[in-house]
Design a protein around this nucleic acid. Structure first.
Lengths: 160, 160
DNA sequence: TGAATTCGTAACTAAGATGGTTACGGAAAT
DNA sequence: ATTTCCGTAACCATCTTAGTTACGAATTCA
């Protein structure tokens, strides 16, 4: 397990919520179902989805027939929305120099890099913003079963 | 200490090597000097600089009067060169789904995101490639002492 | 030759991030 | 009331990052 799976889990879970929304209208997807399908622990799913809920992307409901649902239209949710909700450090920040640096230039390195980093970050944001959740789902559907359409909920699950 | 200081250390150390190259021709900068100025441990400096050496950006020399020097012209070294040398995971990869994921769409999520990620990564590379080491140094000199020029090696050190 | 300096690297450690696991409380449907 | 589900805290294992020590090899200089 290297790096961080929050973005992948977030995209994946929201795609699942979208599928559920389309197929069995109004019935949410549970954390356990998402966890089994994505391959992580249910509590981890709740943690990631909690961040998405705070960002206004999904809604949760307790009790039987509860679970997770999209809070917005699938074409009004971009990859950037998900990334921003789930990754607090917002892509590569320039790490501030340690406090005991004493080179005269040290304080100015972040500033010197800031322009470039801002430009790069902005470009990145635009790329991620240009892709919406329904486009992702469409792409996945085409790859998983070319020419066919998902028919029922069993299509969501693999061998399990 | 959150995240990762390799990129900052790399840029900083190479800027110092450049300064040394300009000021006392041919005299390299030691790991200890870099460490004191940047605010990290000498061994950490050697580890980061080792990656830069393997990438052909700097050269090292043992013994008295040894240390680090640039292996290329400062305007032939870009931020992207440094980043690539020092960050193996090359900016945000899409984490592969855990092996026990069994959703039918799971295997296709990375592919579905790949196009967007590739575009974003390419844009990022272009931004980082467009800035060279001497531009960084110039920017830092302007900010640290507007209108003046670094005169001697004591200008490198702050209060220490 | 011998001492001093500096890189190269391994080994150990501490701190933080990540995610699995268990546990328990609250909300909602039946 | 019971069952199902989220919400969250607590604890743990693992990994990454970086500090620290230690020792060997290379190089300069007396």
């Amino acid at each position: 397990m290297q790096g961080n799976s929050r973005f992948a889990v977030g995209v994946h879970a929201m795609a699942l919520a979208l599928i559920a929304q389309e197929m069995r209208k109004g019935k949410p997807v549970t954390s356990s179902a998402i966890a089994a399908m994505v391959g992580v622990h249910p509590v981890h799913v709740r943690r990631v989805m909690g961040a998405l809920r705070e960002a206004g992307l999904v809604e949760s409901q307790s009790g039987p027939m509860g679970g997770w649902q999209l809070a917005r239209d699938p074409h009004a949710i971009s990859l950037y929305d998900i990334y921003q909700a789930v990754e607090p450090e917002l892509l590569f920040e320039v790490p501030a120099r340690p406090p005991d640096a004493c080179c005269r230039f040290a304080p100015f390195l972040p500033q010197a890099l800031a322009g470039t980093m801002e430009d790069a970050k902005r470009a990145l944001e635009q790329h991620l913003s240009s892709v919406t959740l329904d486009q992702i789902l469409e792409s996945m559907e085409q790859r998983s079963s070319p020419g066919s359409v998902v028919a029922d909920s069993s299509a969501l699950r693999g061998p399990c």
